[in-house]
Design a protein around this nucleic acid. Structure first.
Lengths: 147, 147
DNA sequence: GATAATCCCATTGACACCCATAAAATCCCA
DNA sequence: TGGGATTTTATGGGTGTCAATGGGATTATC
């Protein structure tokens, strides 16, 4: 199965529309889908997306009970914020205002592929976390001396 | 089967009417139903709803954690307060006054999808419980990954 | 007949869909 | 292989349609 990979910076217009990168669209449409499923990340200031098929098991993770004891909080949190956004004729999606706010998006969004899913970041915020990630890796490789 | 997912805030008017979010209506009507079945949650200050089909064989769906004896009690408590609310021509339902009181609803209701069911909350109350839920999850499984 | 419940229509604002443009990538053929 | 032609992509904008909401009319209920 084709995977999401690569980095792409696209414009978010006044209507909240953003083009899904063509390679990502190819993955989606290669599965016969015409929409992307997106939700705000629980732990980071970004949006996470994939084909809707990736989220279909969420329903099963939520205990179909009337009591609070056996619930899966993670599945519930994601399900509550999950949205299915249809691709328009030009391959764009419309981001809900709450999503734009949660990811601190302004007029640009950076798409980064992560295999089975992709993320959308405010470009500067992504640069910051990527830099921190690189430093962690560097520190792990050179535990003794950083210079 | 299509599931309830996403978050939507709608107005509750002076007559107690509230629009069921269009995506939720699509799920209901996709099953050939023209009404929603709703009851106050036994343990939280919110309303829980779904297609009426969910409430058939109620005893079998109660969480196992309750044990056989209390299970019937739970089923009875739910059935006693369960209401079938028809959708009007514009996709709205009329909430009974007792339901509005039990969920502390004022002029707005937040619908959150949870797979097979959905819940209706007073917006501020939902924000509080979601925040608490996220903190529980963060503390419990932040080191783990979602994939 | 009075009160409540249901139905019907009107408004507005958001969104889906359509077309247009520019830039980049790809193709194609001499 | 070069360079023009074609296609794809990203983006901007207009417009019709539908969702959400408000208010009134009609019917049901007691």
């Amino acid at each position: 199965m084709k995977a999401f990979f690569g980095t792409f910076v696209n414009k978010v217009d006044a209507k909240g529309r953003v083009s899904v990168p063509a390679p990502f669209r190819a993955v989606i449409q290669g599965r016969g889908l015409t929409s992307v499923a997106i939700h705000p990340s629980l732990f980071e200031s970004c949006l996470e997306g994939a084909g809707f098929d990736r989220f279909e098991n969420l329903e099963a993770q939520i205990a179909d009970s009337f009591g609070p004891s056996t619930r899966d909080d993670v599945a519930e949190l994601i399900m509550a914020e999950l949205r299915e956004l249809p691709l328009d004729g030009e391959g764009r999606i419309v981001l809900p205002d709450e999503f734009i706010a949660k990811a601190n998006l302004k007029d640009q969004a950076t798409f980064i592929g992560q295999g089975r899913r992709f993320q959308m970041w405010e470009p500067a915020a992504l640069a910051t976390v990527m830099k921190a990630k690189l430093q962690r890796v560097t520190a792990a490789l050179k535990p003794k001396d950083m210079s």
